[in-house]
């Protein structure tokens, strides 16, 4: 079985997002970047599957610039076999989806794992777009994934609870916790990752008809009023005023 794990590279969850007044976009230069936390879950599960079965190959796929390579190497250190980076700066989900579809049409994969959403632009759409482009089965958010004789057994979150589903391969899944535990690369993993193959291809879908023109930092200035614990009625009165509490 061939598994492709698509990763986003996003500002660290603890980053403070800032912007210069004169700029249109938030400052990205001094941010620390990480592999998207949901993508990390997807990759961890892929590696667990590889470790538990014979003949499983795991590839990592990323559309982005070369500054992403150390993080892609980290994915290889965790146990992925090889990686593909499509060189470019995509501005829309459709562009990234088309790059993935295009690659998979030429290099078949049975299972494509992604995160439920990338935590930078929070769209949660690329897996659906890719599934459609390839006409693969598609589910998201997947909380449990097992390979069975007939294909896959999944537990997915629905609007009213959970469903357990069996579906056939090929499939595209958006993953979320608790699908796997995040992993830390081993020393040996780090050493072997150095020689694993990281292929770079040029981006083909350079045009995007949807662009962000301006980003604004969301300053929620909370009131930070201290309520004396001896007099909680102050809170009740305040809440009544704030939200027509009944």
């Amino acid at each position: 079985m061939k598994i492709l794990v698509c990763i986003s590279i996003v500002p660290d969850t603890t980053s403070k997002i800032t912007k210069e007044a004169s700029d249109n976009f938030v400052k990205k230069d001094d941010l620390t970047f990480i592999v998207g936390p949901y993508d990390d879950y997807a990759l961890s599960r892929a590696i667990e599957i590889k470790d538990s079965m014979a003949n499983v190959e795991v590839a990592v796929f990323h559309v982005g610039l070369d500054k992403s390579e150390p993080l892609i190497r980290k994915c290889l250190a965790l146990g992925a076999d090889y990686a593909i980076r499509i060189n470019g700066e995509p501005t829309s989900s459709i562009q990234i989806a088309n790059e993935i579809v295009n690659y998979v049409k030429e290099n078949h994969f049975d299972l494509i794992l992604m995160g439920k959403e990338a935590i930078d632009y929070n769209s949660g759409m690329i897996h659906g777009l890719v599934a459609s482009g390839l006409n693969y089965n598609h589910f998201s958010p997947v909380m449990q994934l097992d390979v069975i004789d007939e294909g896959l057994e999944l537990q997915i979150e629905t609007d009213s609870g959970k469903s357990t589903i069996q579906c056939q391969l090929p499939a595209v899944l958006g993953c979320q916790e608790p699908i796997a535990e995040w992993k830390i690369p081993s020393m040996r993993g780090i050493m072997t990752a150095r020689t694993k193959e990281l292929t770079m291809l040029e981006m083909k879908y350079n045009e995007s008809n949807l662009e962000i023109n301006q980003e604004i930092v969301n300053e929620t200035n909370r009131k930070q009023i201290i309520i004396p614990k001896e007099n909680l009625n102050v809170l009740i009165q305040a809440l009544k005023k704030d939200i027509q509490f009944n």
Binding site: P11, S15, I119, D120, Y121, I212, E215, I216, V217
Partner: peptide
């Protein structure tokens, strides 16, 4: 809404 609610993008 972007960056998990830390910022807003206008189109």
């Amino acid at each position: 809404s972007i960056f998990s609610g830390k910022a807003i993008a206008k189109m």
